[in-house]
């Protein structure tokens, strides 16, 4: 499974949104499903799926689907989206 598929799956599972809504325009607090509770679940899901443990600054900073890709790449340079 590719990294982008894993990432999209994580967003679909954590935010409980259709796959079609997981795209570059998806942002924290702008989509009704991505609230603070969903954000906690998303972080847990991403840490599990990508086997990383985010710093608090990055958890706060992960404000969009695009940003999630950028932050994950920082933790694992071998990941490419």
């Amino acid at each position: 499974m590719t990294a982008i598929t894993i990432l999209v799956d994580a967003f679909v599972t954590a935010l409980e949104v259709p796959r079609s809504e997981v795209n570059e325009s998806l942002e924290y607090n702008s989509h009704k499903q991505w609230d603070s509770t969903a954000h906690m679940i998303l972080i847990a899901q991403l840490e599990n799926d990508f086997e990383v443990m985010f710093d608090i600054d990055d958890i706060i900073d992960m404000s969009s689907f695009t940003k999630a890709k950028e932050i994950l790449t920082k933790y694992n340079e071998s990941i490419s989206f």
Binding site: M40, I41, I43, A44, Q45, E47, N48, I56
Partner: peptide
């Protein structure tokens, strides 16, 4: 609590 809850959240 911050770390533990994050780990527990994986399984809800």
């Amino acid at each position: 609590c911050q770390f533990a809850s994050k780990l527990m959240m994986r399984n809800k």
